[in-house]
């Protein structure tokens, strides 16, 4: 099955959908691996929100594309180079500090992004965005709280958070390289970027953490389907069942 995306609007929306589904999959990996039972439940709940958000976004993509493919087909039958998620969300759960840092950087981005999308002239995108913002409130409360706790915790937790942030910050630049397709949906990309940086700096500041300068990555943009080495491994696990058993129903 070769999945194509013809419509330009659909191409922009599928980036949001892919970012949601890949982060959902990463968090689903934490199910039964959280440091405490409450944390396990929290991360699984946030994962569920992201899967639900992705499903709604793929439905919008499917409608824009004349229902040629279903949401499941978009998720399970595209290869690595046909995925358009930001590289930040595919980074692995190296330790709990990576999980939390990734959540924090993503939540602030998503909060600003969906705030701008909530005024979209496309009704279903505006409606979904308003819904998503309610969910992000809880997810952001979680990542904000944990950033404070780990940053201000022990020297070990602080050092691990800083190491995670130093690594993940390498993948931030591309998040703001909005192209023509994105700009149709995001009325004020400059504001999105400046709000993101000031919000991240504020929270890191109150948590005794820093945003260190990072050398830019020589990796091409996710908008062209380029990914870090972790992406293929993630997809191989996520897509195994429907690819091995194409008629499986659940």
């Amino acid at each position: 099955m070769k999945i194509t995306i013809e419509n330009k609007d659909a191409m922009s929306v599928i980036r949001l959908a892919d970012t949601s589904v890949i982060l959902a999959q990463r968090l689903a990996e934490m199910c039964s691996n959280g440091p405490t039972l409450e944390e396990d439940i929290a991360l699984s709940n946030i994962s569920l929100d992201l899967f639900g958000r992705a499903e709604e976004l793929y439905r919008i993509v499917a409608r824009m594309e004349g229902n040629k493919f279903t949401p499941d087909e978009y998720v399970f039958h595209r290869n690595e180079r046909e995925y358009y998620n930001i590289k930040l969300v595919e980074q692995p759960n190296h330790d709990f500090a990576w999980v939390i840092s990734r959540q924090l950087l993503h939540d602030i981005y998503a909060k600003e992004l969906f705030t701008q999308l909530s005024n979209s002239p496309i009704h279903e995108i505006a409606g979904l965005s308003q819904k998503v913002l309610k969910e992000i409130r809880y997810s952001f409360m979680h990542s904000h709280d944990w950033t404070n706790r780990l940053g201000l915790g022990t020297p070990e937790s602080n050092q691990r958070m800083q190491a995670a942030l130093d690594h993940l910050m390498k993948y931030v630049d591309e998040m703001f390289n909005f192209d023509e397709l994105d700009r149709k949906f995001i009325p004020d990309p400059e504001k999105l970027k400046s709000t993101w940086f000031s919000e991240v700096d504020r929270i890191l500041g109150e948590s005794n953490l820093k945003r260190n300068a990072v050398a830019p990555l020589s990796m091409r943009d996710f908008r062209q389907g380029f990914h870090s080495e972790h992406m293929g491994h993630l997809l191989s696990i996520m897509q195994f069942l429907p690819r091995a058993y194409p008629d499986a129903k659940w």
């Binding site: 409450e38 439940i41 929290a42 709940n45 946030i46 569920l48 929100d49 809880y138 979680h142």
Partner: peptide, 13 residues
């Protein structure tokens, strides 16, 4: 609050 996330997506502990 014990945890913002509970047994279903709509509940907190």
């Amino acid at each position: 609050m014990v945890s913002a996330f509970g047994s279903t997506p709509c509940q907190s502990l």
